[in-house]
């Protein structure tokens, strides 16, 4: 009788252990599937690359409009340099970048892209730590992100330069649980 009870106790104990291990395993599985991630995004890198070629409204002294990439290197070389209309090159750079990214990403707490942060800085070739900040643009509130997508672009400064200019873009995406509306309906149906 006692031996039977012992065996029954053992069986119940074994079954309990199996159930507990299975529940823990299922919890890990669910967490693993739903993990939010920071990822390098080709789309954001392509956006940065396209932005570098954007023709701004800042004209050089020979009346030629400058591209964003040229404004970045000019702003880094001399922060007091001016456009033909008298604005500082760095201010023109910030204004043009802000406008381009606001229209391209359409950040807002009710949209898919909640916020973005753009950092432009000079750094060493191998060391990624910023040596000199050129521009830092933020839009929106960078909290409670479902995921963070990033992109980066390098502006080289010539063979004899001790470093490069790094342009980093981080975008805070809304989570699937957030109710978001599309900036446009996204369809091409007539």
């Amino acid at each position: 009788m006692i031996k039977n009870k012992k065996a029954q106790h053992e069986m119940v104990g074994f079954v309990l252990i199996v159930i507990i291990v299975s529940i823990i395993g299922l919890i890990f599985l669910v967490l693993f599937v739903n993990k939010s991630s920071n990822s390098q995004s080709d789309l954001m890198s392509n956006l940065l690359q396209a932005t570098m070629y954007y023709t701004t409204d800042c004209y050089s002294t020979n009346n030629e409009p400058r591209e964003v990439e040229v404004l970045i290197t000019d702003c880094d070389k001399d922060s007091n340099k001016k456009c033909l209309d008298g604005r500082l090159v760095c201010d023109a750079l910030d204004a043009n970048l802000k406008k381009a990214l606001d229209e391209s990403l359409k950040p807002g707490k009710e949209f898919k892209n909640k916020a973005y942060n753009l950092s432009i800085y000079f750094r060493g070739i191998t060391n990624r730590a910023p040596v000199r900040m050129i521009s830092d643009i933020n839009k929106g509130i960078f909290t409670n992100c479902g995921s963070v997508e990033g992109g980066s672009h390098i502006v080289t400064l010539g063979t004899y330069s001790s470093g490069v200019i790094s342009v980093d873009l981080l975008v805070c995406k809304a989570s699937e649980a957030d109710s978001v509306k599309e900036a446009s309906d996204g369809s091409f149906n007539e």
Partner: peptide, 26 residues
């Protein structure tokens, strides 16, 4: 996908003078 959309644009300085340059948009 984002791309740079570029075209040739003509800048007219008047007096039959001008030049073309690359105008790029996102």
């Amino acid at each position: 996908n984002f791309i740079a959309f570029c075209r040739k644009e003509y800048q007219d300085f008047g007096n039959l003078q001008g030049r073309s340059y690359d105008k790029c948009e996102i």
